[in-house]
Amino acid sequence: MASRRDLHQEEVRFRILRLLNDDPELSTRQIADAVGISNGSAYYCINALMKKGLIKLGNFRASEQKGRYAYVLTPRGIREKTVLTAKFLERKLAEYEALKAEIAALEDEVGAAVPARRVGRG
């Protein structure tokens, strides 16, 4: 069983890889804001992903600012993103099922006192 810290780190990696897959030209500050981590943490995570060979730093020549770079997912990074996506989806589906069960139990507990407004039950 993974610890909360491991799950959090895995989720941060997943979100960074997903963001970079969609927009390789994001800055570390934009990544940090989107993921909800500090700029230093984003920089650290990106460097760790580069050391693992999941992303590489590419210079995009079309830019007028020649110092700008893009973080490009490598084939290994794409595979890792797929694995992390499956794990993330599995974890979120389990959370969803647990919430549905908790909602059903609470509805049973309060009975008819709750208005009959149900959203997305199924």
Rank of each mutant, 00 (worst) to 15 (best):
S3Y: 09
S3R: 09
R4M: 09
H8K: 11
E10K: 10
E11T: 10
E11F: 09
V12T: 14
R13A: 14
R13T: 15
R13V: 06
F14H: 05
F14E: 03
F14G: 02
R15M: 14
I16V: 15
L17P: 00
R18W: 07
L19N: 08
L20R: 11
L20D: 05
N21L: 06
P24G: 07
L26I: 07
S27C: 06
T28N: 14
T28C: 12
R29V: 08
R29Y: 02
Q30C: 05
Q30D: 10
I31E: 03
I31Q: 00
A32I: 13
A32G: 14
A32C: 09
D33S: 01
D33H: 10
V35N: 08
V35L: 15
G36E: 15
I37L: 13
I37Q: 01
I37T: 04
I37D: 02
S38D: 14
S38Y: 13
N39K: 11
N39V: 15
G40W: 13
S41P: 01
Y43V: 04
Y43Q: 12
Y44V: 06
Y44C: 06
I46E: 02
A48N: 07
A48H: 08
L49R: 10
L49H: 08
L49W: 04
M50F: 02
M50L: 06
M50Q: 06
K51R: 12
K51S: 11
K52V: 03
G53M: 08
I55P: 02
K56F: 08
K56T: 11
L57V: 08
L57S: 15
N59T: 08
R61M: 04
R61K: 03
R61S: 01
A62W: 01
E64C: 11
Q65I: 05
G67T: 11
Y69I: 02
Y69G: 00
A70M: 10
V72N: 09
P75I: 12
P75Q: 12
I78W: 05
I78S: 04
R79C: 02
E80S: 01
K81V: 00
V83M: 10
V83C: 07
L84Q: 08
T85W: 03
T85I: 02
F88D: 00
F88H: 10
F88P: 00
L89S: 04
E90M: 06
R91V: 03
K92C: 04
L93H: 12
A94N: 05
A94I: 05
Y96Q: 09
E97V: 03
A98Y: 11
A98E: 14
A98S: 13
L99D: 11
K100P: 08
K100Y: 12
A101V: 11
I103S: 10
V110E: 06
V110S: 05
G111T: 01
G111Y: 00
A112G: 05
A112E: 15
V114A: 02
V114S: 01
P115F: 04
A116W: 00
A116L: 02
R117A: 03
R118W: 01
V119H: 00
V119E: 02
